[in-house]
Design a protein around this nucleic acid. Structure first.
Lengths: 224, 224
DNA sequence: GTCTATATGTAGATAGAC
DNA sequence: GTCTATCTACATATAGAC
């Protein structure tokens, strides 16, 4: 993924210098931040290069242009997050008894929530995903990066509740993902709307609230 | 709202020609569609003018530039939708008994759902709202156009459940709004993820599913 | 691999004729 | 109010020296 023209068994290829790898990584991180803040069209490769301390030309050189860079930014974290989620799902299923609905939903939601609570780059990534999901231009990315994992979780829930309507489960799952993403895009709004209470919206509490909310909503869909 | 420099009692002002009014309206409609499809930066005033059958210069003339046009597009429908929601809330409260939680949530969600089911421009508007909510650049619009109405509904729910945590209610409300908006941005995804079932995702059914999902989630937040 | 210089396109805004 | 023509700025991308 990080070597454009890599070959399964390259006969002879010079190692990439440490500095070049840093440049690539700095560009990816800066792009993630700026794309998340301003959107694909609002973030220019000039600003990204500048924020990364790199040359404008290095973006085309290392990543093959703006669009390819955007896809790499999304793919990098998506594959990591998918792995964490599927691992958590597998762990939940190793116990002898049937897993509880809450455990399955938590296996999907918690890996992201834990990352987002500790690393601002993951928060930026979620804003990016919200953009990707909302923009028809990036549907292909969604299908490739997100839908397989989402499908696995929906199938598992359907297996736990054989009598439930599968479409209703998928609908509730999409609602749950939307609620999850709103934590990164609308945290400011939660704080504004609950100003009276005074609490400054602690991330751990928000995470628990999200899992409770989604589980209750999913149960309502299953018992439809 | 549609007359930039209007004065409470204008001493003498020539009436705006019918054609000019049409130009203004055509621009608003085309802008709504293109902003929703491509985002603020992705939609050019050139394309908007062209889609509206108007001149590029007419956008600055009638609406005062691209940013001002964007705000007008959002404000136009936001004020209409707020009115419908507050009317529905008032209607729910006129009955002697305390309104049910479901009725309050429905008063917020149904007006939009009914519009979106019948008018593609309202679907486009929801994509726009999803953008506005996700982009820090437009927070001021959110606070001005959306938060007052949201606050009224949160206050009503808090009044119905005096022992519930107010922050938890606000959090669940934001999750509900996110789920609602996902109907416009992720309808294609619902269809992809529930392909096995075959149902082509009828909008009326999705609306019912949404209200059920949000009510169950909100109850879980209240009983926290 | 990096960096300068530049090619080529398009953006938003407006002056001034009609 | 409309429309043409044009201004200025900035976009992405790349060729070629180092």
């Amino acid at each position: 993924m990080s070597e454009p023209q890599s070959i399964p068994n390259p006969p002879r290829r010079r190692a990439i210098s440490k500095r070049a790898l840093e440049t690539r990584l700095n560009i990816l991180d800066a792009a993630e931040r700026l794309f998340a803040e301003r959107g694909f069209d609002g973030a220019s490769v000039r600003d990204i290069a500048s924020a990364a301390g790199a040359q404008i030309a290095s973006i085309s050189f290392h990543h093959g242009g703006k669009e390819a860079l955007f896809e790499r930014v999304v793919e990098r974290r998506a594959s990591q997050l998918s792995q964490m989620r599927l691992d958590a799902l597998a762990a939940v299923k190793t116990g002898g008894a049937e897993p509880a609905l809450e455990a399955v939903l938590a296996a999907f939601l918690r890996p992201y929530l834990e990352k987002a609570a500790s690393d601002p780059q993951w928060l930026a990534y979620a804003r990016l995903v919200a953009m990707v999901s909302a923009d028809a231009r990036w549907h292909e990315i969604s299908e490739r990066c997100f839908d397989p994992t989402a499908g696995a979780f929906i199938a598992e829930i359907a297996r736990l509740f054989p009598d439930a309507d599968q479409t209703a489960i998928a609908v509730a799952f999409v609602f749950s993902v939307a609620a999850m993403l709103s934590l990164s895009t609308s945290k400011w709004r939660i704080e504004a709307l609950s100003a009276a209470s005074g609490n400054p919206a602690d991330m751990n509490r928000l995470s628990d609230d999200l899992v409770r909310f989604c589980e209750a909503g999913m149960r309502a869909a299953i018992n439809r």
